[in-house]
């Protein structure tokens, strides 16, 4: 067996980013992701890469914008309130088609909320989050190993699509430790050349990076082009399924909620209830096919989230009355227990 190390989720993200050749990290303190900023302040400097503790999350995302437009891999991390501040920059990056990785270690909201893990930012992450008609790719790992792996893929996906990629975890995943295999095989993508960067026009004509399209029809055309790109992202949909084939009810959950659902599934199966699980790993694009396929024989779905119903809307949209869609969630940092979920399953069946 490969050598494993015990690692915190937040740190695994940092180490994965470093392995993916992230050249610059910009952050601003906020719980529960401070250990990542602290870790990067040491590691990036040791590696002679760029680390800055910025004056705000707004500045941090704009520093990512600057680093990314030179072709360097860059990232920032924060938690919910700070991610709100980054939305301006994320929208500009989407408009300018700049790659970059943004980690959201979600906490309870709205407002200052609390610092418990939560999943209240699903809408914000999957709908674009800032102003304008755009999307970001959203990845939702559910283990420390997957955090380490997916952050590496996130940089590839950002470069592949020239688009910001959001990694959506929460306080629990960020703070927990699990064994990580640092040599784990990670999917590698075929990447286009970066023939759009600004690094001085020594060997070519000057270039510009912009999201401003004032000529009549130009912005419409640009938005159509972005739209086509978002559609293409479907080729990189990721989803985990467990025991769907014989299931009488399927749980749908992402991130930490999926972990609780896995416990609930084990518990329920011990009691003879045939429970399956679909875990979207890409939240945008959303794994429509997998869910649709399940509706062919499953007539009951239970969506479990740490909010009062966000992803459930996407599930309902896809299922479109082909099966019953139920919801169980707790807001404000409340984490359901496996027993609660099994009770809910029994109530539904």
């Amino acid at each position: 067996m490969a050598k494993r190390v015990l690692m915190k989720g937040n740190i695994a993200i940092g180490e994965g980013a470093i392995k993916a050749n992230c050249k610059a990290y910009f952050g601003y303190p906020i719980t529960p992701q401070n250990d990542l900023t602290a870790h990067m302040s040491k590691r990036m400097v040791e590696l002679d890469r760029v680390f800055i503790q910025s004056e705000s999350e707004i500045a941090a995302i704009n520093m990512v914008f600057g680093a990314a437009l030179t072709g360097a891999r860059a990232m920032t991390s924060s938690s919910s309130p700070g991610i709100s501040l980054k939305q301006e920059g994320i929208s500009y990056m989407a408009g300018c088609e700049l790659p970059g990785v943004i980690l959201n270690v979600q906490r309870g909201g709205p407002g200052l909320g609390n610092i418990s893990g939560a999943q209240g930012d699903y809408f914000q992450a999957t709908r674009g989050g800032g102003h304008g008609d755009y999307r970001t790719l959203v990845l939702a790992p559910d283990s420390v190993q997957e955090m380490y792996d997916l952050v590496q893929e996130a940089f590839d996906l950002a470069d592949k699509y020239r688009n910001p990629v959001v990694i959506l975890i929460d306080g629990v995943l960020g703070q927990m430790m699990e064994p990580v295999d640092l040599e784990h095989d990670v999917k590698k993508y075929k990447l286009p050349p970066k023939d759009w960067i600004l690094d001085g026009c020594k060997t070519r004509e000057p270039r510009s990076i912009q999201s401003l399209y004032m000529k009549e029809g130009a912005l419409e055309e640009h938005n159509w082009k972005l739209h086509e790109k978002y559609k293409k992202m479907k080729q990189d949909i990721k989803c985990e399924t467990q025991h769907v084939d014989d299931a009488e009810i399927v749980l749908v959950a992402f991130g930490i909620s999926a972990r609780v659902c896995k416990s609930a599934m084990q518990l329920a199966r011990k009691e003879g209830i045939k429970v399956g699980l679909i875990r979207p790993i890409t939240l945008f694009p959303f794994p429509e096919e997998e869910i649709l396929k399940a509706t062919e024989h499953v007539k009951k779905f239970l969506v479990v989230e740490m909010n009062l119903g966000q992803m459930v809307e996407d599930v309902k949209l896809i299922i479109n009355s082909k099966a019953d869609v139920h919801f169980y969630g707790r807001p404000g940092g409340g984490l359901s227990s496996q027993e609660e979920i099994v009770n809910e399953i029994s109530r539904i069946l």
Partner: peptide, 30 residues
Amino acid sequence: TFFPSYGAEMRGGTANCMIIMSDEDIGSPV
């Protein structure tokens, strides 16, 4: 899995952590 109390939860001077050890995959770390 190891899950610690963190942040403001630690104020007031108490700390705790939750550890699950298993021969199978672990679901919730809480």
